[in-house]
């Protein structure tokens, strides 16, 4: 089982912003317990989906070289509940990024309605903090491909987004 809480990227502008869609389905197991007879998408999983949208954006900016972890959520606000049949669009934007990590702001919309807004701090772990690899490059490559990032994405210069050498194994 993989922990995917977005279904597809709609936009992916390297180093700047990304937009992803999440289709909410009654087939998701947690809907039957959250809550019995009244399925509501857990806000924690909305947060996870927004973090994946922003986190992959940050990872891609470093060529997937940095070990990126979600360090902190300074602010989060939810405006409405969503249920099976609803579609959420997550938009993430990099406010600041450097060798230490990144700040990302993100929103979730249900149609035109603002569903949630959030601020993330991602940290880049240095080698002194963790020696082991958090994810294998193939895992990222598979995620980016499955989520359509290379179909809709653009590099910083506007050219089509391509997998970095680390992921393809050509040059690392």
């Amino acid at each position: 089982m993989r922990w995917y809480w977005i279904d597809r990227f709609l936009e992916f502008e390297s180093g700047r912003s990304a937009k992803a869609v999440k289709l909410i389905s009654m087939a998701e197991d947690h809907m039957h317990d959250h809550f019995p007879g009244c399925p509501i998408m857990p806000n924690s999983l909305v947060v996870e989906g927004m973090a994946q949208t922003g986190g992959l954006l940050v990872c891609e900016h470093t060529g997937f070289q940095a070990k990126v972890v979600l360090a902190k959520i300074p602010k989060v606000q939810f405006h409405l509940n969503v249920s099976p049949g609803d579609t959420l669009t997550y938009s993430a934007e990099i406010d600041h990024i450097d060798d230490n990590g990144a700040m990302v702001t993100a929103t979730s919309h249900h149609g035109d309605r603002l569903q949630a807004e959030i601020e993330f701090v991602f940290a880049h772990l240095n080698s002194g903090q963790r020696d082991r690899t958090l994810f294998e490059p193939e895992t990222f490559l598979k995620m980016m491909r499955m989520l359509g990032a290379f179909e809709v994405g653009h590099a910083a210069d506007g050219s089509p987004l391509v997998a970095p050498p680390l992921l393809t194994g050509k040059g690392s």
């Binding site: 360090a71 902190k72 406010d95 450097d98 230490n100 990590g101 990144a102 701090v121 940290a123």
Partner: peptide, 18 residues
């Protein structure tokens, strides 16, 4: 400890410093 990273980011942005 993790707040210091957050604070540093905000200071860098607010004052345009590194």
């Amino acid at each position: 400890s993790i707040d210091f990273l957050d604070i540093v980011f905000r200071l860098e942005k607010a004052f345009e410093i590194k």
